[in-house]
Design a protein around this nucleic acid. Structure first.
Lengths: 325, 325
DNA sequence: ACCTTAGCTGAAGTTATACTTATGCTCCAG
DNA sequence: CTGGAGCATAAGTATAACTTCAGCTAAGGT
């Protein structure tokens, strides 16, 4: 590998102008310095780069080829620096944000669209996944933001969490629910542990993560065994299954507000307050955010808060999402 | 423009390995030096390139983009150096040779083909033209070789000739000729200046360069006026016109050996010996030739000499070419 | 033909800066 | 809780790039 890249900058100027003096002026050094540098470079690559004609350097083949490598590089570097400069005053570039699948599919596209309306120079890549997949991507610098359910993050084993910065942007109430028909037929108003643990359950994942968390919260029972009759990684599907009397499921209450008020679905309550699941915007703790990131972060938080009804957290959010994915 | 390209090499290694110590080892410097260099680079571009996580540097967006610029560049430089290295032991690469159009069309393609048979890694670009066009190209480093007629070079005004190195590779006899019929009807054996200057002439160019040179050589007359009845920039055409009794023309004798011996065309002689036109292989005086150039030069000279009948110059070459183009 | 000028080269001395050494800090692992 | 791995920082040294000055060569002007 070439030892000294700096000489290439000098070479670039000498080649462009075809003159040592011109290059020396451009670089604000003496012509002797330029001459010496070119000689050193030629010695380094062990090939003449110019043939010395009186008062003129004409490039050799090797020189020409080298220039063809260096020239676009210098151009790219120049563009790079200019881009960085404009990005200091004006949001621009690509943002990579991670989000839970349901949230990413349902809410992010419209947020992105609105944002791009205002800042058309910003592009996006959405990565959908669980905290377990998203946080490592964040750690490796492959994501700028991750939106995650704290509800889930707590339960899973993810290395050291203190390298991340969690910024809560919304909350939702996570409840247990079944259809009115199912409730009348099987639950019969008995919301005790022994009653509920005998029911049919609808889960998001085979490990019943959300259901276990619900039982842990409400009854302080950790290793429950329940009958899992349907596993489907979609909120719509779970809600639909609940409505069709398949069994009991965990769901964010704001997703079924309507079905609760008209009595199609029943909220299974216990004496304990419901689980409040915080949606957090996660970033790398030590990362210095770019202007673009700061602007988007502000925008995203405002959007989500606004969608939550204007007042701060703690009302069951209409946005955000819950459960497993 | 970036002040210090050298730091990019360090950046490249740090990014590749994701570690300061690894880069330091690869570059054979201390860990501290690498750390300092990266900090200076970040200061220079005024953007963080890595976010410091414990025991690890993870690249930011800016860092990633910079790497995407630097990485292919480093690769290209590497390839460049390797190419130069192999070119020291093995002919390879592109050769740009200039030649007179007729020569370039008639002889060079077969020479190039033979050469490439032996050295398949060498490619060619042929530039056809007169010395006036070819020599400046040589001077600007756009050609590696030029084959030119010294005959013509003398007559035209081309700046300083001593920057070039002329290597004679063949000679041809340049003669005045007409058909036997034309000779009997109009010349009638009178080869004096007053007789010849009244004839019809066939020229290559409107300025009658070749004809003027012939008269200057044979009669020491500089500003002759003759009747130009046909101008055509092709030897075949001129010979054909001569054979069809259009008039008198200047031509290389080896091109019409057959027609002279069977009497179709007559050689118009004077007491003076004929013009001997040297074909020279011209290179830039001070250019250090590459191996590829040396090998091809050797090959070209051998080929032309060999085509000239095995013994050295001075017999009317069967190769090479004459006249204007 | 001469001198002058423009441009590249080269040696010697100086200055800048990259590197080393040494130390400290932080976070993870055992 | 302690040790170790990896990055950051300060101070001093050494390397190498730059400046200055002198020399060389070819072109151009008078």
């Amino acid at each position: 590998m070439l030892q000294n890249l700096d000489r290439l900058k000098v070479f670039y100027h000498v080649f462009s102008s075809g003159s040592v003096v011109a290059a020396a002026n451009a670089l604000h050094v003496s012509q002797s310095a330029v001459s010496q540098t070119i000689h050193k470079l030629e010695k380094e690559v062990n090939s003449p780069l110019f043939t010395r004609l009186h008062k003129q350097l004409v490039p050799t083949r090797a020189g020409k080829r080298l220039y063809e490598i260096v020239q676009p590089f210098m151009g790219a570097l120049d563009g790079y620096q200019k881009d960085l400069e404009v990005a200091k005053n004006h949001p621009i570039g690509e943002l990579r944000v991670g989000a839970p699948p349901e949230f990413g599919k349902a809410y992010l596209p419209s947020i992105v669209a609105d944002f791009r309306e205002k800042y058309p120079d910003v592009t996006f890549t959405l990565e959908l996944g669980t905290p377990e997949t998203l946080l490592p991507l964040l750690r490796e610098g492959l994501l700028d933001f991750a939106l995650v359910d704290v509800f889930l993050t707590q339960s899973t084993h993810i290395g050291h969490l203190d390298m991340y910065h969690f910024n809560p942007v919304g909350e939702e109430e996570v409840i247990l629910a079944c259809s009115r028909q199912y409730h009348e037929k099987y639950v019969k108003g008995d919301h005790s542990f022994s009653s509920l643990s005998k029911q049919n359950f609808i889960s998001y994942r085979k490990d019943l993560q959300a259901i276990r968390l619900w039982f842990k919260h409400h009854f302080s029972k950790s290793n429950i065994h329940v009958r899992d009759v349907l596993t489907v990684d979609s909120h719509e599907a779970v809600i639909s299954a609940i409505a069709h009397n398949v069994g009991i499921g965990v769901v964010a209450s704001h997703l079924i507000t309507e079905k609760l008020s008209n009595g199609i679905i029943v909220h299974i309550k216990t004496p304990k307050p419901e689980i409040m699941n915080a949606i957090s915007l996660v970033q790398l703790q030590d990362k210095i955010p770019t202007l673009t990131e700061k602007v988007f972060e502000r925008y995203l938080i405002d959007k989500i808060r606004e969608a939550n009804g204007g007042d701060s957290l703690h009302n069951s959010g209409t946005n955000a999402k819950a459960g497993e994915f």
